[in-house]
Write a protein that binds this DNA or RNA. Sequence first.
DNA 1: ACTCGTGAATGAAACGTTTCACGATCTCCA
DNA 2: TGGAGATCGTGAAACGTTTCATTCACGAGT
Lengths: 336, 336
Amino acid sequence: MSPSIKDVAVRAGVSVGTVSNVLNHPERVTENTRAAVLSAISTLGFVRNSSAAQLRAGTSRSLGLIVLDLSNPFFHDVARGVEHVADELGYAVVLCNSDDQTARENRYLQVLEEQRVRGVLITPIEVSSDRLDALRRRGTPAVLVDRHDPRVNCCSVAVDDVAGGELAGAHLVAQGHERIVYYSGPPNLSQCADRLTGLRRAVASAGLDPDEAVEVVEVPVMNARSTHDLARARFADGDDTPGAFCANDLMALGVLRAALSTGRRVPGDLALVGYDDIEFAADAAVPLTSIRQPTQQIGRAAAQLLVEECDNPETHAHQQVMFKPELVTRDSTTPE
Amino acid sequence: MSPSIKDVAVRAGVSVGTVSNVLNHPERVTENTRAAVLSAISTLGFVRNSSAAQLRAGTSRSLGLIVLDLSNPFFHDVARGVEHVADELGYAVVLCNSDDQTARENRYLQVLEEQRVRGVLITPIEVSSDRLDALRRRGTPAVLVDRHDPRVNCCSVAVDDVAGGELAGAHLVAQGHERIVYYSGPPNLSQCADRLTGLRRAVASAGLDPDEAVEVVEVPVMNARSTHDLARARFADGDDTPGAFCANDLMALGVLRAALSTGRRVPGDLALVGYDDIEFAADAAVPLTSIRQPTQQIGRAAAQLLVEECDNPETHAHQQVMFKPELVTRDSTTPE
DNA sequence: ACTCGTGAATGAAACGTTTCACGATCTCCA
DNA sequence: TGGAGATCGTGAAACGTTTCATTCACGAGT
């Protein structure tokens, strides 16, 4: 078995309390004894048992973060933001990937609660989850990431998707395109629906009729291949709509490839706007105009809200933070 | 404070030992008492305190996984493989991202050891790390991922990079290209060096002189943009080498864009091979021929080795597993 | 010489589990 | 009827920390 604080105490000729003080309150201990204890620690190779420490202390300094999909750069950046703030404030982050499976999400919530994390950051699969409600009822604060709670029962941090759609729409209209295809994901995803709302709003405020100017194409799986296949079929059928807006960049890359391989010039024949501004957007065959979300900031803000709630449970007031997205213009809409 | 096993015991009218049995050995307990205990648990909203459990049990059922860079799809897939196996064997995985910083790597090693994880899977920044040696000396098994230990002191799982380079080289030569540019990363990375070795070997065994047929271009940062800039400059200078092999797919995408934008046809004027077969390779402007590594399998194998060592510490013999990469042929080398 | 105050170290209690040797109760059969 | 098993449940000990009231040692001030 690995040596305990007791072994260290014996070796250094002091009591266990003193060893603990060296570890946690070095200033309470004399230079000499501290040195003796530290040397005992290193010769024995002592490593503190955090289970015991946390059991006694009753509370941990760690946060749980449950994201939908770590392979999505969006969530990866969010996580980075969270870790950064947590680091600064002396919290550890337990990173969990629910992979869009309710079973996994629930399991992780259970594990995090058993570990007595101070709080949880989560992009839930369903906005209202019994498991999550129970957690919060028992006193573990939670913050929603990239989602809003319809009943405003906890803090949340998200991005204004309507505004994002509006940015894209306004940009396309400003380039003179009066007909736009919107490649959407499943319409029950609020992100997809909101972006469409924004797009239609932009079109309307340019004096066009949204019902005529905007055509919605629902793509079942929001990836490049699936979108490519759909778009290619449309192009083969003679689709010559001059503008396209995609619910994410991967989809836009699919449309781009379909367009180029059917002899269309981008942006000459087709102006294309994506969403998310993923790293590769700038490096695509035609660099992609996209809507950038402040991903790291989302993570940072969420972590700050959570820690604030953990530290001041009584005075805390729930907040719904909403960031604004930003248009990044590249070759896919603006001729060089 | 949240209710403890004691509160549950009182509520259900049984002893704490019985509650513990319901939790851990349900078969030792009568149908009736089990029901009573479970109902007490749910009305009180009891959640087991894993610190206490682990403290008493002395050992945990969790593994640590430290990767270099979670934003790299390669490591993401490895992690997926690890989680899958761990799940099956009833282990939890603590996922850590060292982000290529020694300080972070050391901090995580410390945390994992304090948590008394059963074992650690790691892609270390330096192959020989004092911190890691110490960990293993104190009895926590470790397995190297995507690295080999020169002193064969622990298990490791990696991919044969020489073979990968050879595959790429043989393929390009078979297509009739007798001059090849190798876009390499920093040559002190064994991955880059090994792939070059393989490439030269393939060229040589086709009867060509490697020194003449292979030109090495060192790209300082292994991403798309940096490679694009370098390649574009070369193309502008009139480079007309018919074959190119890149140390990873992002670099290949950079070369691809540079080639297309300077009017070259791919594969007509330039045949291009990448490495890693990242998800986007198939969806690039010209779908990319690439060398696929069995990423998930790496993770699975590593996890299996680790668990094996954890379960049979005495009989265990260290193994160095080496996977073979695979050529995936797409349009960037084969005319349609 | 005596007390007081201060700073350092002590040691026992407590945290919430799991474990295990030990009772209690019941069943079955001689 | 009695005793041997088998089956359930009990309760105290133990895990390795942290905390905190207490003790100790040592100078300074009267």
